[in-house]
Deep mutational scan, measured.
Amino acid sequence: MEVRTIKVFTTVDNINLHTQVVDMSMTYGQQFGPTYLDGADVTKIKPHNSHEGKTFYVLPNDDTLRVEAFEYYHTTDPSFLGRYMSALNHTKKWKYPQVNGLTSIKWADNNCYLATALLTLQQIELKFNPPALQDAYYRARAGEAANFCALILAYCNKTVGELGDVRETMSYLFQHANLDSCKRVLNVVCKTCGQQQTTLKGVEAVMYMGTLSYEQFKKGVQIPCTCGKQATKYLVQQESPFVMMSAPPAQYELKHGTFTCASEYTGNYQCGHYKHITSKETLYCIDGALLTKSSEYKGPITDVFYKENSYTTTIK
């Protein structure tokens, strides 16, 4: 009895394709271990004539594949690729409408935090270190965002349907971005203890939790000093293409032309909904596939993004 075979390709990165001759009487799992086709788990399936010449994702289970996976995804987590594939199996079914010149995501599976993050990423200057993220990001900007969303979920250790947080998501993504040249110098002034300067680099240099107003941050924000008295913390120097200011959701007025974009969060910790506000020729609110415009805006804002380049204080 002759062994019926077909020729397929296996890959971990969709760049390096490895030619395989597979036995049609055995499952993919018996031949390769966990195997995925377009995100779908085909591990328990036997090869079919229609699979001839198709590319299958496999887990990096030998040295060659491990090197290829690390170079593309910059992670050695053995569960990463499987999590990416199972997320992709959902995100490829989502709709990605162009809204006001940006790629958004039609609401499904509690994905409003991903839509808000995706919209924000198209408006701030950011370059990702893992080629996987950078490639998928370019495709997302062009309207094909399924891979990018699935990668975000995998890097953030999230599953489809789980509630997510924009600030946490951005923080994970910033860790995989090139923020080497970003720098922030802060000064804390206390009447009792004097003053202390701190220099922050990388992710810490672009994120701040405690106030939404970048102007206020430049002037000074009140913080408790270690001595128990009130101290003032203010920005001395900022070198970065953008800054992200966050605070627990509270009524906040966004003035046209003073910011790049913002995240609105309605609801409580267990259950809520994100919308995205962007400042173009007027203010726009993007909620999944829905767009509304207004000249002014007041609502429960939790993150505001500002364009920056270089700032030095005039406070002496």
Rank of each mutant, 00 (worst) to 15 (best):
Q123T: 06
P241W: 05
T116S: 09
I315A: 15
K255Q: 11
V236E: 05
L121N: 03
Y57R: 08
Y297R: 02
A117Y: 01
K316Q: 15
T313D: 13
F70G: 13
E52K: 13
Q222K: 13
V160H: 07
Q270A: 13
V12F: 08
K275I: 06
H256A: 10
T211C: 15
T64D: 12
K106N: 06
A205I: 01
L283C: 02
F242L: 02
V67M: 14
I152C: 04
G194Y: 03
T11Q: 09
N147H: 12
N100I: 11
S86T: 12
V67N: 14
C190T: 06
Y113P: 01
P249C: 03
V99N: 07
R4T: 15
Y265I: 03
F174L: 11
A262S: 00
K298V: 15
T232M: 13
S25V: 13
S310L: 15
N16I: 09
R139V: 06
D135T: 09
D63Y: 08
Q195S: 15
F9I: 11
A40M: 13
D135Y: 07
I45G: 14
C271G: 12
E68C: 05
C193L: 02
T192H: 09
T76S: 11
H48I: 13
C225A: 02
Y274E: 03
V206P: 04
T103L: 06
C182D: 07
F80V: 06
S104K: 04
Y172T: 15
P130E: 00
D77E: 08
N111F: 07
V160I: 10
L59F: 11
K316V: 15
H276V: 01
A142E: 15
T192Q: 14
L37S: 12
S295K: 14
Q270F: 10
Y284R: 03
T169E: 07
K93H: 14
N129F: 02
N110V: 06
V3A: 15
Y113L: 13
Y252G: 00
H90Q: 15
I152A: 08
S213F: 01
E2I: 10
L151Q: 01
F70H: 09
H273C: 04
S279C: 14
T258H: 13
C285S: 07
T120K: 04
I223A: 13
P60S: 08
T260Y: 00
V22M: 11
T232I: 14
P131C: 01
R167S: 05
T169L: 10
Y84F: 13
K275H: 08
D41P: 11
Q237D: 01
K106E: 13
N129Q: 00
S263D: 05
C227A: 01
P78T: 11
D63N: 11
L151H: 04
K316A: 15
A140S: 06
V304Y: 03
I124Y: 05
L121P: 05
M209W: 15
T314V: 11
K298G: 04
K46R: 13
Y306V: 01
H256I: 15
L235T: 02
F32R: 08
Y306E: 00
Y73N: 07
N129E: 10
V58L: 11
M24Q: 13
A150K: 08
V206K: 01
K46P: 10
G257D: 07
N178D: 14
E215H: 03
S295P: 12
F148S: 00
L102S: 08
E52N: 12
H176I: 05
L37E: 13
N89M: 15
P60F: 12
N187I: 08
G39Y: 10
V8I: 12
Y113M: 04
V243A: 01
C182K: 00
T19D: 15
A115C: 10
N178M: 07
H176K: 10
T5A: 13
S104L: 03
G210R: 02
D13F: 04
A177Y: 02
Y155D: 07
C271V: 05
G288K: 05
T120G: 05
H276A: 03
M85V: 10
V58K: 09
T10W: 05
